[in-house]
Design a protein around this nucleic acid. Sequence first.
DNA 1: CCCATTAATGAGTTTAACTCATTATAATGC
DNA 2: GCATTATAATGAGTTAAACTCATTAATGGG
Lengths: 264, 264
Amino acid sequence: MHKMAHVESPPVKGASLHPRRRVYRLSRERRVADIMDSARGVFCAKGYGDAVISEIAGQLGIVEGTIYRYFPTKRDLLIAVVEDWYRRILADYDEQLKGISGTRNRLRFLIWRHLKVIHDDPAMFRLVTGELRGGADYRTTSVYDMNRQYTKRTLAIVEEAVKSGEFRADVPLRMVRDMIYGGAEHHTWAFLRGEGDFSPDAAAEAIVGIIYRGLMGADTAPNSENGAVDAQAISRLESVARRLERVAESRDPRRGREKSRKQG
Amino acid sequence: MHKMAHVESPPVKGASLHPRRRVYRLSRERRVADIMDSARGVFCAKGYGDAVISEIAGQLGIVEGTIYRYFPTKRDLLIAVVEDWYRRILADYDEQLKGISGTRNRLRFLIWRHLKVIHDDPAMFRLVTGELRGGADYRTTSVYDMNRQYTKRTLAIVEEAVKSGEFRADVPLRMVRDMIYGGAEHHTWAFLRGEGDFSPDAAAEAIVGIIYRGLMGADTAPNSENGAVDAQAISRLESVARRLERVAESRDPRRGREKSRKQG
DNA sequence: CCCATTAATGAGTTTAACTCATTATAATGC
DNA sequence: GCATTATAATGAGTTAAACTCATTAATGGG
């Protein structure tokens, strides 16, 4: 509102006064790739908020406007950078998973892989969780889709284990997934802030251990302490029930599933 | 570098040209409280990045500079707002926890409380997770301290249950805490982005169920005071029995155990 | 070697965080 | 009730960074 006329002699808008230095032009693809490379470095080093477009341009020896030719906003640039990173990460994902068998091994691999990514590239992960995931446009992002695919594998493995009777059926699958990935992330906060370190191997093993014991049919070791009469009786019944459940489910999965489901 | 002399007649720096409207002064405390109130509303409505100081000032009928008298930066204002909110949240925390007994109940209360906070004030929670927690200054924040106190209670409850033999001893306690709070948060992401809803009660129950089964001693806690363990096992057996009865009714009752048979 | 295409420029504008010399209000002392 | 004083508040800035666009010129196809 308080714009003031400072000089009433406006030079014609794009009039050039100095000769331009020799300019080398790159193909669109090449320039875009260069910009994303540089942007990634700056975003990781400074974080999104403190990253400055002119610094990215400066690294490439180009001018800010050139970047805006390819990326309409700073945020679009961020999204492109993160999407590219995520795509690379997940490139050989299914291939690797194919080579691993057994519920426990497969589950541990998925968790370990996730933790390894965080460990290897904490700055990028921070961009995802701190900047992207909170935004209203997150769902329009391919990161969202890729992430869904990613966690869906986990759900599928747990689901299969339930069907085969390895896992109990009365457990909310979504929450299992949430606790795995949420737990992994929560576990790495301190590291992500630059405080100390963590071990992807140890953490994956810990998570898979808790989940496994939590979902396993209540197989109990024999115990003869006082009060064990009831416990043993229940344990025996649990075991019988589990066997029967398996039989019932393989006979009529539809009925079995819909009746044992409690929460969605 | 390219600052240009626009007008060579600089008016003396703070010279007043217009008479000021009548100004009412508030005490420092009162003004700070008002600013924080207003800031909270704007931050929640727009998010930190899109919130504008001048809008906060406008709501109060004051000028931007007044806000900067009390809060050196926009971020400091955010931190103050979040700290205040968090302090209120945790005010009666220990009091409430004191009235709850039994590992399972206490654990569920802590989780439920956390989920309830998210459910009741998602925008504030987003400020904490999206803006504050990622920052390098998070640890200097009292939110950090309060959060530590908060999750420490959880750890204490689990630790005690391990000592009493209710929980198994070979479990990494930190990871249990991480899976509880990380899982809770992961579970609420969609809601936090404004997609759909979630039930704090159901979610808390689901989390506590998984954790409980995962940590329960293999001997199923012979001296469990409130009988929660046995009750859970029995409840599960009852539900399985009901289900089996239903399956049996709709089938040839004389058919015994057989190998599972695949059907379409 | 021309010329159409389009990469790149550079000189802006706009917006929003932040600063500070000055003003004048409300509390204090007499 | 009046002068004094401490300080709340102002308003007119500056600065920085995202973003725009008319113009320029490098490049590759003919």
